[in-house]
């Protein structure tokens, strides 16, 4: 595995995905809507307005990027299947790890940066006209999600891509994404009154599971398996 390989794969993925301009925009709008709705539903009952807004922001950020990353991973692998490029790429000196990390890095960049941009806008809106969102560490439990989310997101994207490469369809990755959602929102529901060891432990366990799954998936993934599934 070489760093240059990962960068080359990521660059190509970025070019391919952003080429689907209409689909890219549509996906982002859907993710934005789903993110807004789910975050409001989960943070509505938090009594303290400051904690509510901070947690809302964190949830909104995570929801948007996770929905977005899932759709993009699916789009990416479907594009490979349709264009029938996978076999050619597998026959090059690229290792499976480089391919996986490169693809995941591209999806991560495309999910993380726009989501962060949206959160900043929402935060500025809430902070300036409403004066509600202050995000003062460590009083707001939402902060922990901001720190954990990039790692969690990258792991989830890796599993998505692995499952899509293994199974050649998106059902497996849908289940993974749904599980990550459950983890986040269940933990979030308990975190409304502050950061507890249980919440922190839950997230760390979640992260470990995601990376363990990625590792096991990659360990057993063979080029033959992908080629024969094409």
């Amino acid at each position: 595995m070489r760093f240059n390989d990962i960068v080359a794969v990521a660059k190509r993925e970025l070019l391919v995905i952003t080429n689907y301009k209409f689909l890219f925009l549509f996906t982002y709008l859907v993710s934005f809507y789903v993110g807004t709705y789910l975050s409001m539903a989960y943070t509505n009952l938090i009594p303290d307005p400051q904690i509510r807004i901070d947690t809302y922001l964190a949830f909104f950020f995570l929801s948007t990027e996770i929905v977005f990353s899932w759709v993009l991973s699916t789009l990416q692998v479907q594009d490979y299947m349709r264009q029938r490029c996978m076999e050619t790429i597998l026959a090059t000196p690229l290792s499976l790890t480089s391919i996986l990390l490169g693809k995941s890095l591209a999806i991560f960049i495309l999910s993380y940066i726009p989501s962060l941009f949206c959160v900043i806008i929402v935060f500025l809106q809430a902070n300036w006209p409403l004066g509600l969102a202050t995000l003062i560490l460590p009083s707001s439990p939402g902060w922990i999600l901001f720190f954990i989310s990039p790692v969690l997101l990258f792991g989830t994207i890796c599993i998505n891509t692995l499952l899509l490469m293994y199974l050649n369809h998106s059902m497996g990755s849908l289940i993974v994404n749904f599980s990550v959602y459950l983890l986040i929102f269940r933990a979030g529901a308990h975190s409304s009154s502050g950061i507890s060891p249980a919440v922190l432990g839950g997230y760390i366990m979640g992260l470990l599971c995601v990376f363990l799954l990625s590792y096991i998936g990659l360990k057993f993934l063979r080029k033959e398996r992908i080629v024969l599934a094409l």
Partner: peptide, 27 residues
């Protein structure tokens, strides 16, 4: 070097972008 029956080029990318990727991969 190899050319498989499915040419392995991404139709959304330009000729240059397609070859540039493989040039990078081959170092």
């Amino acid at each position: 070097g190899f050319v498989l029956e499915d040419h392995g080029l991404n139709e959304r990318l330009t000729a240059y972008q397609n070859i540039d990727f493989f040039a990078q991969v081959y170092g």
